[in-house]
């Protein structure tokens, strides 16, 4: 396997939430925004901004593996430091498909991209997208239930 798929520093604040049982998108945002705010990654205004952003520009992606992921993100002004928040969902939560106003994607994995200057994060973003194309990695994310295993996945182990 390739080493260091995603730099660990993007997960240094350990905003990693496993197998959450939530009913809708806004619950997802409420839970993960609270965690990101608690760890100082985002500003207070983040939750509102990300909800609005997702409504206008949805980020759900249907993958070949049949599993949906979402990569919610918003403008740098709401972010204190570069970080990715992760949440896996016990049962799928509906997000809208990126670039569509009608299609919905049942999402099991959420990666909240908190980026201060995304154009400098090209490698990370590309690697993340690459990971999404690997069925075994997606399955590993879904079955993962602790921080250590999570870090192993992003390190390609």
């Amino acid at each position: 396997m390739i080493k260091m798929l995603i730099d660990e520093k993007f997960f240094s604040k350990k905003v990693l939430l496993f197998n959450k049982d939530l009913c809708n998108r806004n619950q997802v945002f409420a839970v993960i925004s609270a965690e990101l705010e608690k760890k100082g990654v985002v500003k207070k205004t983040f939750r509102e901004a990300i909800e609005k952003r997702e409504k206008n520009y949805p980020t759900g992606l249907a993958l070949t593996s049949g599993i949906g992921v979402a990569i919610p993100h918003t403008d740098p002004e709401y972010i204190n430091e570069n970080q990715i928040g992760f949440m896996s969902l016990e049962k799928p939560v509906e997000f809208r498909q990126m670039g569509s106003d009608t299609e919905v994607v049942p999402v099991r994995l959420v990666f909240v991209l908190c980026l201060k200057e995304a154009h400098k994060q090209l490698d990370m973003l590309q690697n993340l997208m690459e990971l999404f194309g690997k069925k075994e990695v997606i399955n590993a994310f879904i079955s993962c239930n602790n921080e250590n295993d999570f870090i192993k996945i992003i390190n390609g182990k």
Binding site: R53, H73, D75, L113, H119, L122, L125, Q126
Partner: peptide, 13 residues
């Protein structure tokens, strides 16, 4: 893209 920083960066690459 929506923000001009994230997904458009990937597509640009």
């Amino acid at each position: 893209c929506g923000s001009g920083v994230a997904t458009s960066t990937v597509v640009m690459g």
